[in-house]
């Protein structure tokens, strides 16, 4: 691990200032469950590490008329146990419950979970891959059992965050703070695939951090479900996951958001599946059609063909839970 300068600012403005003067050579640390591993493995070699834990704000779950706001420094276990969240967003609670292990959820934060880097073993290992500015993706001809079947383009990482998958399904938005001020973007637009930027997974500039997540109040009749498959049941990143949020009216699916995790470089919104659901009665046939549509464009590699069936099954499972 290379030596770095450590900052523990008391105010957000100081964080932004430090980031904006570091020329891209600073990283932020919230719960530390991802960045510490990256520092130790030499994946990141920043000059400066800016600790966010000393900031007084950004640890909250606040309900208002239009929805719920979650401070980026709120730990996953706090959110998982929060009564407002439990009441309004069971989909998010389900996703958090199967994220990592309880010890990690006690430490990891909302912002960190969304901004964590991919787990690709080539990215994390001694390989000069595209995402590190190198010349190629080593997974293409290598060990790609855990890699993307959707949305891959030159690089085939999968986005590791369960909570991001759930939050995109919940139509959440992200508040971003930077030296140019504050802005809010739909979380869906927060993530970028390799065709947009092969070096990072989101739109954050060097001087920006994620400060808050807003989840709008679900409309009446909204129902959500989350399904995830892991190789090791106790704690593991997703082989695949499927988050679904539907608004049901008289057994008919009025609105639907379908987001797949663990199968694409970003939380993968499946418009194809949503189209199959909208205006339809949610029955086994509709579910089968939607699940098939979700993976129709899948392009598996040599070792991850199983993810196609798995994703289809997980989406069916989530939709069946809503149907019941």
């Amino acid at each position: 691990m290379r030596a770095f300068e450590y900052f523990a600012p008391q105010q957000l403005a100081d964080v932004i200032h430090t980031l904006s003067t570091a020329g891209g050579n600073a990283r932020v640390c919230a719960g530390g469950t991802d960045i510490l591993g990256r520092l130790k493995d030499g994946v990141d070699t920043p000059d400066k590490l800016v600790c966010l834990k000393t900031l007084p704000e950004m640890r909250y779950v606040r309900e208002s008329n239009d929805g719920v706001r979650i401070g980026a420094l709120t730990t996953l276990s706090t959110i998982e146990e929060d009564p407002i969240i439990r009441k309004s967003f069971p989909l998010l609670v389900e996703a958090l419950y199967v994220t990592a292990a309880p010890q990690i959820r006690n430490q990891a934060t909302m912002g960190g979970s969304i901004c964590q880097r991919p787990r690709c073993w080539y990215l994390r290992g001694p390989f000069d891959c595209l995402r590190k500015g190198g010349a190629k993706c080593f997974a293409v001809d290598g060990e790609n059992k855990y890699h993307a079947i959707l949305g891959g383009h030159l690089c085939y990482i999968v986005h590791p965050s369960d909570s991001a998958t759930a939050l995109v399904a919940l139509n959440a938005s992200a508040k971003i703070q930077g030296s140019k001020g504050e802005k809010t973007v739909p979380l869906e637009k927060f993530f970028v695939g390799p065709e947009v930027n092969i070096l990072k997974e989101n739109i954050l500039e060097d001087d920006e951090i994620l400060t808050e997540i807003f989840i709008p109040t679900p409309s009446a009749g909204a129902r959500g479900a989350f399904s995830k498959s892991r190789e090791r049941q106790s704690y593991d990143f997703a082989l695949a996951s499927a988050a679904v949020q539907c608004t049901m009216k008289n057994g008919v699916c009025a609105e639907a958001r379908v987001v797949l995790g663990g199968v694409a470089p970003i939380p993968w919104r499946s418009i194809e599946a949503e189209e199959e659901l909208k205006g339809k009665k949610l029955d086994p046939k509709t579910i089968e059609r939607a699940a098939a549509a979700a993976v129709r464009k899948a392009k598996p590699m040599t070792q991850n063909i199983y993810k196609v069936d798995l994703t289809r099954q997980l989406l069916s499972k989530s939709l069946s839970q809503i149907m019941v």
Binding site: Y122, P126, F138
Partner: peptide, 10 residues
Amino acid sequence: VIDPASGIPL
């Protein structure tokens, strides 16, 4: 798991 092209364990 070993990367076949480089011999590096993953």
